[in-house]
């Protein structure tokens, strides 16, 4: 299912005035493809991602999955939470794994959040951990894993619920160039296999060689028209 961001605008209060973080953005990410969103700090990339994930309600505009309107300025927080759980996978800047859970449990948690038995996703979780190359570390907690291994577990966690949309925020910021490139390659490959529309925010273009499309943002606006292939 394609991800459509339509006329999205987001402002934050800034003292007595306001700051426009996202300024009338239109962007479409086709299902099964990865769109990289590049731009300097403060350009609005992460804010756009937050709106696409329903973490922040936009002032104006609509987020659609296929033809279905999912998030608007009026979407209640509880509904946004449900949509994230059922339809969106998220990978954060730092892996943000839960300290008391093993790698396998990080993935099984998704089933528990959906009211299912954790064991119901065990085989899928093991497959994904194998796909990201950390199956041997499935019983380790985050403190026992390296930074790269933690990020791989986070990617597997984002995909365990077979999301329609995958939103990735600066996944390579804590990794060296080689590992960063590998992580982006892994994300694009798994997103393709899964058919998920993937929006990947980064500030490092050199790691994005496998992304299907690159879009640049500056001052809250998309610099290049959506659909431009720049990779």
């Amino acid at each position: 299912m394609d991800l459509h961001l339509e006329h999205l605008t987001l402002t934050y209060p800034d003292g007595e005035s306001s700051l426009t973080a996202v300024d009338d953005v239109d962007l479409t990410v086709p299902a099964g493809s990865t769109t990289a969103l590049l731009g300097p700090s403060g350009s609005g990339k992460s804010s756009l991602l937050a709106v696409a994930a329903g973490l922040t309600a936009p002032d104006h505009g609509v987020v659609r999955f296929g033809g279905e309107q999912v998030f608007t300025s009026a979407t209640p927080a509880a509904r946004a939470t449900r949509e994230r759980l059922n339809r969106i996978g998220m990978v954060f800047q730092s892996p943000q794994l839960l300290g008391s859970l093993t790698a396998l449990e990080q993935l099984e948690l998704h089933a528990h959040l959906r009211g299912r038995r954790p064991a119901s996703v065990r085989s899928r979780a093991l497959e994904l951990l194998a796909a990201v190359g950390v199956a041997d570390h499935r019983h380790k907690r985050p403190a026992q894993l390296s930074g790269g291994q933690r990020q791989r577990v986070a990617i597997a966690r984002a995909l365990v619920g077979r999301p329609e949309v995958l939103l990735v925020d600066e996944p390579t910021s804590a990794l060296d160039h080689e590992r960063g490139t590998q992580v982006v390659e892994l994300i694009t490959q798994l997103a393709r296999e899964l058919g998920a529309a993937t929006l990947l925010v980064s500030h490092d273009a050199s790691t994005l060689t496998t992304a299907d499309r690159t879009v640049r943002m500056r001052d809250g606006r998309i610099e290049e028209p959506a659909g431009t292939v720049a990779a």
Binding site: A53, L55, A78, T81, R82, R84, L85, N86, I88, M90, F92, Q96, L98, G99, L109, H110, L113, R114, R157
Partner: peptide, 16 residues
């Protein structure tokens, strides 16, 4: 609170 924010971002409801 950081972990709770992550759980919410992953889709955990406040009631959960």
């Amino acid at each position: 609170s950081g972990e709770i924010a992550v759980l919410k971002a992953l889709g955990a409801s406040t009631a959960y």
